[in-house]
Design a binder for these strands. Sequence first.
DNA 1: GTTATATTGGGGCATATGCCTGTATAAAAG
DNA 2: CTTTTATACAGGCATATGCCCCAATATAAC
Lengths: 147, 147
Amino acid sequence: MVKQISSHVPCYCAVLRKAVRRVSVLYDAKLKDSGLKTTQFSLLGELRRHRTAPLTMNELAEYLVMDRSTLGHNLRPLLRRRLVALKPDAVDGRTRRVTITARGEAKFANAEKLWEKAQKEYEAVIGKPAAVALRSALQKLATSDAL
Amino acid sequence: MVKQISSHVPCYCAVLRKAVRRVSVLYDAKLKDSGLKTTQFSLLGELRRHRTAPLTMNELAEYLVMDRSTLGHNLRPLLRRRLVALKPDAVDGRTRRVTITARGEAKFANAEKLWEKAQKEYEAVIGKPAAVALRSALQKLATSDAL
DNA sequence: GTTATATTGGGGCATATGCCTGTATAAAAG
DNA sequence: CTTTTATACAGGCATATGCCCCAATATAAC
């Protein structure tokens, strides 16, 4: 893209959404050859982080700051491709625990290299200190109880 | 929501997306009674800002930092509800200029009151100075040529 | 134990987002 | 003037997002 013009909009949400569109395009482009979208990459990453004690869908949704039904929808393509699996819980018949498969692990490892390039490019644009500070502010925002 | 837990994820994009989910829920909830989603409200606002000289779809997409096809999709529900209109350009047969209708203006004016409450609540959560600084950083990010 | 309440997740609906491809129109090349 | 190239937009495809309502299961109240 060239010579980006945009109104100076007062809406906090609108500006946030503009930024996420722009940044998502960057990350999705970098991840393209891996066959994963940014959301899918993040989802697999979260599962990887909880390999030893798989989360229920509710827990996973909370970690991802995502609606339960959204998580369900996002899991479907990954289930179809056997990158993740659902295991019925031993004690609670309602819950299913979400795990990353070996295929998923492999896919993630491959995508991680491309993701690092996206991270570097993002940092190059706004500067690493600013990037880290911004991420910290957004993390706080994303996990604020008060909202 | 209560007691939000979330991993400390290194991906700038993932955290940005988490934040946008969370904030969008707040704004959409506030705007609910207006019958407009946040994106629709922003879209109408942008049209309103250019009332006197309606933009082409390409121009509008650029202002919104949004893909052209995404804009087309987002316009469809608004066209259906007669909140916006497309006028063929006088000189260029390919372009269509997007305008907000009287109905759209009325809808926007009503939604604006609710939007202000969302803004206030958002500011209350993270503090007004932080909110303004964050918006400024995100605006820069959204409109950076380098990306 | 039976009933009431709460939790877990699924399915349907609508919008949001962007890619790729095609079509129509305009502008440039010759 | 015809051909080529560039631009503007539409449509199909897939994922992303969240709401609502519902069924199944579990827990609490009695």
